[in-house]
Design a protein around this nucleic acid. Structure first.
Lengths: 219, 219
DNA sequence: CCTACCGATCGGTAGG
DNA sequence: CCTACCGATCGGTAGG
């Protein structure tokens, strides 16, 4: 009996988090009222507060769950890459595909993570940023493994962020019910990126101090 | 005298719009109060309302000014491209450079345009979206001019959005006072993009129906 | 005495 | 240009 209730509690809580993510993604965190969240879940506000401590917990839980899912993805690809003996390029392609699929599944959560994380308190923000940094580092390492010359030219970090730009920005133009799917865009991103790395690396090789040269604002 | 007041009025109004853009970018539109805007401008709230009709007008003005600046940029590059006889690739490179420079100058405004445009009313939103679409189309046309094969493969639109992903996402990791400048990243974006287009176009040529194949979610 | 909720309202603050 | 407010709604919680 107690277990039955507990499982109902957890399932209800997950539905609430999902509705909150949808509303936060559409209206922003400060633009969404707890009344709206309660209404979307078809419960009264006191009932809503039975499942979550306060509004901040909603945001923290949504962001944490999503960022942990991304970190898990990275770990899984690591394991799979070792087990199947994938090449660095194959590993990065798998990473890109898995991330795009995750974004497709969790579009709302992803938008909340990118746009509303600033409304968390400093402690939660620091904790999640640390996990995000691990994820970004994993991509950067995969890129360096595939194209070691980039690290030598100190181009691996900006190039990593350009890759994240391509895949993260998709939430503004790829719609779950649209003509193009996340699965179809993933290989385009990978092809564009790997094709482009050659050009960037070539430029870096011919002008190894390109970054230092460009780093200062033109006077 | 009246003219003297008018010019002061306009200058004060611009400072207010700039402060508002800074606050909206940092806290979001619903998360920013008119009291905060007034305080940041060192004026009372009634004084603030002497320069702007309401909160909504602040947002609309910030977004419209910025998107019109981007549209102007496109027009200027068109003129310059014709006058100097630039190749399609040179024109697109110039477009990328000019946009990155504009983002560097107007980071707050750009963040507001991308994250808070949803809080405008339907009419303003439709008007600005139409201008945005013109800008995106100009990029798409420049890309097609440089690589006609992409249009045949119906890849020019997603590829255009991937390019926008790279340059738009920079506002999350490029800081005006950071180690890397917008000017130094612009050629990296262009090199990565043009290098990658070859790979995407090659894939498209070897499998012309790749998009149709990928367009449906895997069953 | 517990849980799971309801209708009503709390103290503060929003935009204006 | 300020103090002083309004109708409403905010996030959160009272009693039953």
């Amino acid at each position: 009996m107690a277990r039955g209730r507990a499982s109902t509690f957890d399932a209800t809580r997950e539905q609430i988090l999902d509705q909150a993510a949808r509303l936060f993604a559409a209206q922003g965190y400060p633009g969404t009222s707890m009344n709206q969240v309660a209404e979307a879940c078809a419960v009264s506000k006191p009932t809503l507060y039975h499942y979550v401590r306060d509004k901040h917990e909603l945001l923290a839980q949504i962001c944490e769950t999503h960022v942990l899912e991304l970190a898990t993805l990275v770990a899984e690809v690591d394991v799979q890459g070792q087990a199947q003996g994938l090449s660095p390029e194959q590993r990065l392609r798998l990473l890109i595909t898995r991330f795009m699929q995750a974004y497709g599944r969790s579009q709302n959560q992803h938008r909340v993570l990118t746009e509303d994380v600033k409304f968390l308190n400093d402690e939660d923000q620091a904790r999640l940023k640390a996990i995000e940094r691990e994820v970004v580092d994993a991509f950067a390492n995969a890129i360096v493994a595939a194209r070691p010359a980039l690290q030598a030219a100190k181009l691996h970090k900006p190039v990593t962020m350009l890759l994240f730009g391509m895949i993260n920005w998709t939430f503004t133009w790829l719609k779950p019910d649209g003509e193009l799917s996340y699965d179809s865009v993933a290989p385009m991103v990978a092809d564009l990126f790997f094709g482009g790395l050659g050009a960037v690396a070539t430029e870096a090789a011919s002008a190894p101090d390109a970054k230092a040269h460009h780093a200062l604002h033109t006077p």
